[in-house]
């Protein structure tokens, strides 16, 4: 489904930069993160409390750099995801109501060169393991391939829009 993002209402745009997260319970807010290549953009939303959160995750495991994970837990899937959920709980979200959607995890390679680290796929498998362990299902996903994506979450409605190659779609 193609949607016209411009017709959807919001007044404040909260941007999650790379290895950052944003949360909001203000209906006027749009949460957005750009240029997801191998990174994952994970949205969570509680439709009752109308609390939303979005994180831009770069790498699967904090074990490669515990020092960095201590100062910037949002960088890693295994430390960033628990943080996102806990911060959403502080704003009134309840785990059993949370709707989780994810985009990104692409295989970003230059022409003719192998994606030997496969960071996108590693990120995705790590996320799936973490969600299974913690009893959370994904309600929507747009992952893999080799495109760059932008994901946004409308706090008023919980709608999640993924944009890639100039096309927007509801997730």
């Amino acid at each position: 489904m193609t949607v016209d993002v411009l017709k959807r209402g919001y007044t404040e745009k909260q941007v999650a930069g790379i290895a950052e997260m944003v949360l909001s319970n203000r209906p006027d807010d749009l949460l957005i993160t750009y240029a997801l290549g191998s990174c994952l953009g994970l949205c969570i939303y509680d439709p009752v409390a109308k609390v939303g959160g979005l994180i831009h995750l770069m790498l699967p495991s904090s074990q490669i750099d515990p020092g960095r994970a201590a100062t910037n837990p949002e960088r890693f899937v295994d430390t960033g995801v628990p943080l996102l959920f806990r911060e959403a709980y502080k704003l009134g979200a309840r785990k059993e109501r949370i709707i989780a959607k994810v985009a990104g995890g692409a295989s970003m390679v230059e022409a003719g060169r192998a994606d030997s680290f496969q960071t996108g796929k590693r990120n995705y498998v790590t996320l799936k393991k973490l969600l299974w362990k913690n009893g959370v299902f994904l309600k929507g996903e747009d992952v893999g391939g080799n495109v760059s994506r932008t994901i946004s979450l409308y706090v008023a409605s919980g709608e999640v829009v993924v944009k890639s190659n100039g096309e927007s779609k509801l997730l």
């Binding site: 439709p47 995801v81 628990p82 959920f85 806990r86 785990k95 059993e96 109501r97 973490l130 362990k133 913690n134 009893g135």
Partner: peptide, 17 residues
Amino acid sequence: DGEPHDMEAAGGGGFDF
């Protein structure tokens, strides 16, 4: 979908979040 999930009965280990 959307009914409360039975987290406790699901078995497995404890939740981290």
